[in-house]
Write a protein that binds this DNA or RNA. Sequence first.
DNA 1: TGTAATCTTGAACTGACATTCAATAATGCC
DNA 2: GGCATTATTGAATGTCAGTTCAAGATTACA
Lengths: 194, 194
Amino acid sequence: MNRGRPRQFDEQQALAAAMEVFWRRGFEGASCDELLSAMDMNSGSMYAAFGDKQTLFDRAFDLYCETMFKQGIGVLDGPGTPLENVRSLVECWGEFMSQPNCKGCFIQNTLIEFGKNQDGVAKLARQLLKRLQTMLESKLTEAAEAGELSPGADPIALAAFLVNTVSGLNVMARTGADQKTIRGAVDSTLLLLR
Amino acid sequence: MNRGRPRQFDEQQALAAAMEVFWRRGFEGASCDELLSAMDMNSGSMYAAFGDKQTLFDRAFDLYCETMFKQGIGVLDGPGTPLENVRSLVECWGEFMSQPNCKGCFIQNTLIEFGKNQDGVAKLARQLLKRLQTMLESKLTEAAEAGELSPGADPIALAAFLVNTVSGLNVMARTGADQKTIRGAVDSTLLLLR
DNA sequence: TGTAATCTTGAACTGACATTCAATAATGCC
DNA sequence: GGCATTATTGAATGTCAGTTCAAGATTACA
């Protein structure tokens, strides 16, 4: 059926390798050399398969969103009450971000690198965080209605606050903060989720 | 007294201009062209005066620390009780970070860009944030001893938490979060400082 | 006025990096 | 086996940014 020389690489596997490199180094920080050796490909094959560096990044970013991110926010729909779900997510962030040599959250990293860019991957990253914020808002609203939160707590403000917290944790993780600091930040954050 | 052609530029003024550019664009993001036109200098003069791009960055970073940063944490020694001082600082962060087109905190930006580098300006940035954290710890300890905090509040964890918050606010500011989100994060943070 | 010292100017140099390309290799189909 | 098709290889290319340098300009001092 398929004519011509068969590919020596698995596209998904190569993409996963590229994702790791971009995730740790960012777009600018990842040299084509590093990418190619991680993907175990030559430049020609890579450019034929993926187009260029930016397109490769976009696809690696997509892969992250479809796997890591979806899996992460899946915690919000776990068993337990709405508030328990939110608290679990914050705990997960803390666990993840305090792993040694943690790469952080690819989405946050991307947002930081591309800043206020109004198109492409930066826009996508902003939308995803917005979606996270919205999901937190509804979970926290549910929690408030169920009487799980202190009276007078503001679900909208709390959701913004939690997104802010994960942004901070991401920076901490990537800049080598000690575990105690990260743990302290998480513990204090959890005090507000009661 | 001074032989030779006199300089056409003011060193402090040129440094301040460089600081603005580095502050907004980061080290990699700031091209020499942009720096030179902001400083109103030619490459030769700049290299003769400052050495190279990295040294220029280091000096711009120093300038920031000696002016903006010192001025910022000065709020902690203002009038009022220890807790009031801490709350004022958080309020200042909120005000600052929600200004349109805010450049964020140069120290945080630098830390993010240079990541886990163990020397030079990254090490300096880490030390400065550590100093901020320590100052917050002692202020919050004072506050706890004065009965300003809820019983059982942990000053160490709270200080880590506040540093985390400012990291998050910095990311928000630089990635174009809306004011309401920033305000929500600040308001929720302040709930813990009671 | 002449000379040494210092600064300015901008073109040239250099290295790193993303990308392209021509030659080569491996497959399916006739 | 011959041919069309597709993949691999790595050297070559082009671009861009940081840096250098030689020529010219401006000053103080003798």
